[in-house]
Simulated assay, not measured.
Amino acid sequence: MGLVDDSRVTVLLGGFLLSLLALVGVTALGAFAVLSAFLDPAAGTPLLVALLQTAAPFVAVAAMLGVVSLVLLVGLAVAVVRSASVPRDARLARLARTVERYYPGARSLGLSEKFEPTTEDRIDQLKQRYVEGEITELEYEQRLQELMSDDDVSDDRVRRERERTDRQRDREFEL
């Protein structure tokens, strides 16, 4: 599911943009009001008091809209991060382990485990390398057997992969 398909992201983005637009509008109206009060001050009131009386409501509304915009922006950032998929890559996992080694506080985040590719991911990568011709069938079979001996690969996946490679071998013998 993409970010655009996530309704939370869409609602938060729309709310943030609308609050930002309202903030710009209120600020512009306040600037015009202050400018008009500066050009035509009320009779008998000092200029500074007239400017402050004119600007006060606009400053209060702008501050509230600023807080709302900030809250929506933080919510949007959190929603985007939560809905974004975490890439699983051995290099990223190594980098995360290095960071965890030098910064003990980073260990509590468990980044290295989040980035570590699963056996299923490794099988998919192996299959892709075989399909692209980077490795031979023998290498593919050997590495596949090594990966399938891991505990976290499902029995279903092992059976499907073996059936697929057997069918492929049978087709090659027929040719």
Rank of each mutant, 00 (worst) to 15 (best):
E113K: 09
D89E: 06
A42D: 14
V80R: 03
G44P: 02
A31S: 10
V24M: 12
Q145K: 07
G30I: 06
Q128L: 09
S108P: 01
P104N: 05
G15A: 12
A79M: 05
E172C: 00
R8N: 13
S112H: 03
L3V: 07
R160N: 08
G25P: 02
S7L: 13
A93R: 00
A55G: 05
D170R: 14
L95H: 11
Q128T: 12
T45Y: 07
D166R: 10
L23K: 01
E172L: 09
M64E: 14
A37Y: 01
D152H: 02
A55N: 05
A63M: 11
S19N: 15
S154G: 03
L70E: 14
A28R: 08
A90M: 13
L35C: 07
R169D: 09
E172D: 06
D170M: 05
L51K: 06
V71P: 05
R8I: 06
M1L: 08
D124T: 00
R122L: 08
E161G: 01
L39A: 09
A106F: 11
A77L: 14
D89C: 01
S108K: 15
V11L: 15
D155W: 07
F38C: 11
T136L: 02
G44N: 10
D152T: 02
Y102P: 06
L18D: 12
Q125D: 10
L73H: 06
T10Y: 08
A106Q: 05
L72V: 03
A43Y: 15
Q53E: 15
A31F: 10
L52Q: 13
E100M: 04
S69D: 06
A60N: 10
D166E: 11
V74E: 14
Q142D: 05
L23V: 04
L92N: 02
S85F: 08
